[in-house]
Design a protein around this nucleic acid. Structure first.
Length: 219
DNA sequence: AAAACGGGGGC
DNA sequence: GCCCCAGTTTT
């Protein structure tokens, strides 16, 4: 993909995305009344987890508690039960308590708005921190998950080995106007069409801009 | 029966 | 860099 092709590619994705389901995490985040704490916890639950279960698990959890202080009064066992269908539920329940403790001790019960501070919280890495900053605070950030990493490289737009490198490369290359929506566009695209193995290249409208880096089979 | 799944932490 | 966390869905 040539540098200037990104505009056309994003334009097409914005049109095509209507036929796919919107990312559940995006829905959860927006339905959280832009409450950074609820957004942060939703993002934590979504790690390495299929989309639908995240929404249902967060609904059950937020019925129990909606603030860091309330959350600390809920026993770990109860939290584990509420979020059970998501993967790594024991680790995540512990992280939730750890996060709430840190928020109360160091940030007056509020969620910090900088990536550097967010990644110091237990269970929060760069993907989660970027998502909280963009969705929760409307500040520029690039949320690089496995879909963004894979597809950006498949296009040949960047050439990186790890999601961390991808975030760095995209910060330099991707026009800032697309930072916040990039993840929301690539996730449904990656789930429905541009899948990890044998993507649906025959019905994809982006093939003119794609180098198919690493694609061995396609449908 | 495997592989894959919207990462992150501990070592 | 390697291994662990874990249930669910897809191949």
């Amino acid at each position: 993909m040539r540098r200037d092709h990104i505009h056309a590619a994003i334009r097409i994705l914005q049109r095509e995305i209507r036929q796919w389901q919107e990312p559940v995490l995006g829905i959860v985040a927006r339905n959280s009344d832009r409450n950074p704490f609820l957004i942060l916890i939703s993002c934590l639950l979504s790690l390495r987890t299929k989309d639908k279960t995240t929404g249902e698990a967060s609904d059950r959890l937020f019925a129990l508690a909606q603030t860091p202080a309330e959350m600390l009064t809920v026993p770990l066992k109860k939290i584990e039960q509420a979020i059970y269908p998501v993967g790594f539920y024991r680790t995540k329940a512990k992280s939730i308590h750890g996060i709430c403790r840190r928020l109360l001790d160091h940030y007056g019960g509020n969620v910090p708005d900088s990536i550097d501070e967010l990644v110091t919280l237990p269970g929060v890495g760069r993907k989660t921190a970027n998502l909280v900053v963009t969705v929760g605070y409307g500040k520029p950030g690039i949320c690089v998950d496995i879909h963004v990493h894979r597809i950006s490289n498949r296009w040949g737009y960047i050439k990186t080995e790890t999601p961390e490198e991808s975030e760095e490369a995209l910060r330099k290359k991707l026009p800032e106007q697309y930072w916040i929506t990039f993840n929301d566009l690539l996730v449904p695209f990656g789930q429905n069409l541009c899948q990890p193995v044998s993507p649906f290249c025959s019905t994809c409208k982006l093939t003119a801009y794609c180098d198919r880096v690493g694609v061995t089979k396609s449908r």
